[in-house]
């Protein structure tokens, strides 16, 4: 129970890592801004997200030092992404597959409500 252990247990990251990361992040920002001036149609979003994910990876691994951390810290962080993905996947795919929420179909078929009007007299069927 020594309060005075000066054992050098902390890994000090060389400054050049940080400078290189800073420069890469700034360059990537410029890239994403420049690319956004051109219209790639449906590819706009994936390209922007790809650049953002690369930037996020740099921040997480170098600035936040996750690559030098214990395994469980990594598992915990990746776990959060997995569960976020579950949330996204189920709720978004539900929205996607509800026909009346689909604006294109709604316009085409003039569907406003999921409830189909009853055919007159149908309620008397036994």
């Amino acid at each position: 129970m020594s309060n005075h252990d000066h054992s050098d247990h902390h890994f000090i990251v060389p400054a050049r890592y940080y400078v290189a990361t800073l420069l890469s992040l700034l360059v990537l920002t410029i890239i994403t801004v420049v690319v956004a001036q051109y219209n790639f149609g449906g590819w706009n979003l994936p390209i922007a997200l790809l650049v953002a994910v690369i930037k996020a990876g740099l921040v997480i691994n170098i600035f936040m030092g996750l690559r030098w951390n214990r395994t469980f810290d990594r598992i915990a962080f990746l776990g959060s992404l997995v569960f976020l993905f579950i949330f996204f996947l189920f709720s978004f795919s539900d929205e996607l597959l509800r026909p009346y929420r689909n604006p294109i179909e709604a316009v085409h078929h003039d569907i406003k409500s999921p409830v189909k009007p009853l055919v007159k007299g149908a309620e008397h069927h036994e």
Binding site: F83, D94, L97, R98, P114
Partner: peptide, 22 residues
């Protein structure tokens, strides 16, 4: 427990596909 929440939405207008999966 994170994969089943949609069973609260069976009659809320959730898509049939989601109903079945959940």
């Amino acid at each position: 427990s994170f994969l089943v929440w949609g069973h609260h939405l069976y009659v809320s207008g959730q898509s049939d596909y989601a109903d079945m999966i959940f």
